[in-house]
Design a binder for these strands. Structure first.
Lengths: 235, 235
DNA sequence: CGGCAGTTTGATGTTACTCAATTTAAGTGG
DNA sequence: CCACTTAAATTGAGTAACATCAAACTGCCG
């Protein structure tokens, strides 16, 4: 396995950048001993609810998601993680998470010893800034999904999810011709917006018939963005 | 209007305590000039989405809630606030909130100048700890409500909300005979769990018929806690 | 070519919404 | 203390949205 660089490949992004810059004593070419890498296969469990972990994870490459598993087999996907994302801000302060997380695609993670991260928070104001940003983004995202789940129809929720993911992707890379790589099965969409995968299929089919979007084999092609926004925006 | 004490009456609770202890130079008997009080009537808007504010608010007395207003008149209640609660951790770092908040009952607030709060974060590790706790509690609460909204039936969601509020109340005061003051209209419950108030009324009526709970004029009396938990717990 | 996971489609069932009327509770002024 | 007013809660009937069950179809990989 080859890593693109010794430290976190996404150090340009918020949290990872602050964390690594906070250790001035460690040159970028050396990986400090309180950091380690880990790869994960699609579907592999990364965080298990209630299971204590010494480490805080940042997603370096691939997609992952946080979720809450119910005993009846159903699960709620709480949010999707893209490269550079922290596996929840709370994980920095709580060793026993109240959620689970798993990889969606082949993924690479950076694990940081929690005690080290906390120590750096106390010393480096940039860490606080980065964590605050992460916290704010998570809260906004959670508030939005909650509103969609509680107040909007199936079509609106699915459109909302697409728009939200498109934003996350666009914040990280240049988009050409309104094509987005979304490595999701319809079941993932269903688990995120609180519908059955059957109904998700129907709604996506409807969108397709209306010339709104095309979604297959992990690529979302937006054909009528204004209309998608009209349906999916929270306002 | 008389305030129970000069500084925040709930300084024993997390955030407020850390904030006020962080200013060693100010004796408790004096109110520092970067803090002010405010009262709010039931239904009064405290935070307006997208409207910049210099202050960070803590609820001192009464109930309030955060919500997201949609243009079609519907709204999602994101969470309820009880005395001692911060009006969202993100408000400490972002001056332009992406949510609104209003008082549910007669309420008293403590407003703190954001710049002062941030400065104290940089200097006092206890502030970070308090904010981290607040952030963690908010995230857990949001994850739970999201799971309830996405994956559970009307009965389960309402039972979940009751249990969750009972926990919040129990964390602040001693409960006798399973009686809880919940100053909510059924419309608030509906807006929180994503149902119509008509359906909330039906479900509560059902619960009443089953001898599960009694809920009227702002008091919840739990008659069969194990059964309520069986229905409403996320597990 | 066969097997498998994921998607699509159809038929039917259930949950929760809508609309509208009625009842209850909580004031308010005489 | 009693009419009157108003907001909230309850009840009923009809409907829409989404779930469930099951079968057929598609694309992919060995």
């Amino acid at each position: 396995m080859d890593w693109p660089c010794v430290t976190c490949p996404n150090r340009k992004f918020g949290f990872c950048g602050a964390l690594l810059h906070s250790s001035e004593e460690t040159p970028f070419q050396q990986k400090p001993n309180w950091q380690h890498y880990r790869a994960a296969r699609p579907g592999e469990q990364i965080i298990v609810r209630n299971q204590v972990s010494e480490d805080v994870f940042v997603l370096c490459d691939g997609w992952a998601f946080r979720f809450f598993q119910l005993s009846n087999g159903r699960r709620q996907i709480l949010n999707f993680l893209l490269p550079g994302d922290l596996f929840s801000t709370v994980a920095v302060f709580e060793e026993r998470p109240n959620f689970s997380a798993q990889a969606l695609t082949e993924a690479r993670l950076s694990g940081f010893r929690r005690s080290e991260v906390q120590a750096r928070c106390a010393n480096d104001p940039r860490m606080i800034t980065a964590l605050a940003e992460s916290c704010a983004a998570e809260t906004d995202s959670a508030d939005g999904l909650m509103t969609a789940l509680g107040q909007r129809s199936a079509e609106e929720r699915i459109a909302y999810l697409f728009l939200h993911l498109m934003q996350q992707i666009a914040a990280r890379s240049v988009i050409r011709e309104q094509r987005y790589r979304l490595p999701l099965r319809q079941q993932h969409i269903a688990d995120a917006v609180g519908l059955t995968s059957v109904h998700v299929s129907r709604v996506i089919g409807l969108f397709r018939d209306q010339g709104l979007i095309e979604f297959s084999s992990g690529v979302l092609q937006v054909l009528n963005l204004p209309e998608l926004k009209r349906i999916g925006s929270l306002d």
